[in-house]
Design a protein around this nucleic acid. Structure first.
Lengths: 369, 369
DNA sequence: GCCTCGTTTAGGATCGATCCAAATCTATTG
DNA sequence: CAATAGATTTGGATCGATCCTAAACGAGGC
């Protein structure tokens, strides 16, 4: 309480307008200096126990609020991150963002979120804003059509960036995602085991890693199974509607495919609906496999077999990687690639041996698995 | 600054470490003062056209990056908002956040997002952090169990806050949401028109506005239809699983309900699955209506009739309201309540007049509507 | 009692913008 | 031609923290 005889200039004495409590005020109240208070706030081991307690009491007494902006101005870090996804309404990204959030919360970080709507311009604008905000780093699912030069730009900006799920440019860069190639291979192998040979891939049209790797996985797996000739990729937007329409076109061909693997679950659900529209039974007349294993997959009829890609875990890994990169900006770039797992449900019937009864009933509906 | 006479003290002369370009540097380059540059940046009409052009050229030439932290320190606004939802993985909130984002983007605002996971403690921690960040305002879906005193706290903090979807405390406060009461009434009326009388409401257990208003709407509508006696509310967590299990219990009763209205679509989809599990036909043996009209609703079998609550639009309204409140902090509090619309699909068959054939086929599956 | 050494605390400079009151420059007018 | 209003521009003070160097302090040794 050492209010020296000189002017302490308490901030709300003079004007009627009440200003905010600052370090200076606390220092005055606790009878120490600004610097000491600052050290206490930052939990420095330099300050003596008694002083710390005293200062903390004053902080509480005056109802002090830390000003992050001011701190960031002088220091370099902001404990702030920018996150860009291209479709936050997609439950897959929702889960991913939840994973990111859970890690950041533990690390005392807080994040800006933007929905790029797959527009590179919008994405660029947000990134520039993030630079102005002096965020410590970025988590980026690049919008479709993003110029790979973006990575150079970010490097010039000296801005750590972890790409998530998709990536642009060429390594080395930081990345967290899942092994789509492996996932598709598992799907193909599963179908082949069930006797399928005419397996079509319903895939994306965009040219980024997330489609390329899936297509690659499909081609490799088909070749490995000696089905190189039967390869067939149908491209289109990765929407429900495309699944719905593509499957109807496909099923009018002859011979028609016995199975489709879809770029994501939305397409797969659309495809199942398309089969019903034709009066066909999804899973029976044509096996369907999706990718992502969103919650809805377990709920469809029949429940959808899907390549589980664990969005929450990917989010967590990406956030952790960003923390590592911020702590050690010069460190070697890392690529965290999770292994997907084929979640088998009931949308893939085996091809019956000839002569066997064609008709099968659905298994009981269930929420499990 | 009045340093020694003549020294311009360009920031990266002396140390090897390259510092960032500041207003001062631009001023020197353009031959004007710091203040003028600042005015140009803020698009003030005070500065002459010629000067503006000159300064903008210098800004570009030096590759200047605006420092929002510094600006916020001196000025009062940060052009920054905090958004709190309790389950970002829920596609409903994803759409809502997308709506918020789209408005903020237009307004040159950027937002912090947090997922409270319905934990008041976690929510409180984030709100305190937002105060430290000096955000201009908050968009809040209060976590379940939030103390209504939170509103007083925020008022003390002098922090504008728009509640979204749910609300705590008593008016006046700013709020954007949907008229759940009306929505449920529409659902009841629809069912009654189809001949239903034993209509159960599968609802939430939590005590906040979003459940209370739904229950209220249900009770009112049932009374208005002369079905006060038939009222029945089953409470439980608003999850798929609860829908799945509750419906199975209900259908074992005698007489059993002919229709259920669910707190949200997830419960409704779960309920349809539960009916299938019992070997019953959803929509035929028991009509099902959901709430929210998430994308998946159109995709189920049969396609789900649902009270559409337009999450994207709610997000937009909430963000716009926040902008208004920030521009005019003292203005009258507003409550923007959107009208829901019953999206009729095929999950509610009429109660057949006795003697009529019991069996009906599903209409063709479709993606439309 | 004096000196050294390590621990704590102080205070001035600084980060990069905005605010504000005053200075300067143009036209315009009596 | 001086005076004046209006349009631009300016410099110093300021926002609230951190960095950095130096000073104050207390304990222990001779």
């Amino acid at each position: 309480m050492a209010r020296s005889p000189g002017t302490t200039s308490s901030p709300r004495d003079r004007s009627g307008k009440r200003q905010s409590v600052t370090l200076q005020d606390i220092a005055a109240h606790a009878g120490v200096s600004r610097s000491t208070v600052s050290l206490v706030l930052r939990e420095s081991p330099l300050v003596a126990e008694a002083t710390r307690t005293q200062v903390q009491a004053s902080i509480k007494a005056l109802g002090y609020v830390y000003n992050r902006g001011a701190a960031a101005l002088r220091a370099s870090r902001t404990f702030t991150l920018g996150v860009v996804v291209y479709d936050i309404a997609n439950p897959f990204f929702g889960a991913m963002v939840a994973g990111i959030d859970s890690v950041l919360h533990r690390e005392n970080y807080v994040s800006f979120l933007a929905n790029s709507e797959d527009s590179p311009e919008r994405q660029q604008r947000f990134l520039e804003r993030m630079r102005e905000q002096r965020v410590d780093g970025l988590l980026l699912c690049p919008a479709e059509g993003t110029d790979p030069a973006l990575l150079t730009q970010l490097a010039d900006w000296n801005m750590p960036c972890v790409q998530v799920l998709r990536h642009i440019g060429t390594p080395p860069f930081d990345y967290a995602g899942t092994d789509f190639e492996l996932g598709v291979r598992q799907a193909v192998d599963h179908l082949v085991t069930l006797g399928h040979r005419r397996i079509v891939f319903l895939g994306g049209e965009a040219e980024h890693s997330a489609t390329r790797t899936r297509h690659q996985g499909y081609r490799d797996a088909m070749h490995a199974q000696g089905l190189g000739e039967a390869q067939r990729i149908v491209r289109g937007p990765v929407t429900r509607r495309t699944g719905f329409e593509s499957i109807q076109t496909l099923m009018q061909e002859s011979p028609r495919p016995t199975a489709v693997i879809c770029h994501n679950d939305l397409m797969a659900l659309g495809a199942m609906l398309g089969l019903q529209r034709l009066g066909l039974v999804p899973g029976e007349d044509c096996a369907v496999i999706g990718t992502d294993d969103i919650e809805e997959a377990a709920l469809s009829l029949p429940p959808l077999t899907s390549v589980a890609t664990h969005p929450f875990a990917i989010g967590e890994e990406a956030a952790r990687l960003a923390m590592r990169r911020i702590a050690n900006p010069g460190g070697a770039r890392e690529q965290v690639v999770l292994k997907p797992r084929l979640q088998v449900r009931h949308s893939c019937a085996p091809i019956p041996a000839s002569g066997e009864a064609q008709y099968r009933r659905y298994p009981h509906a269930t929420l499990d698995a």
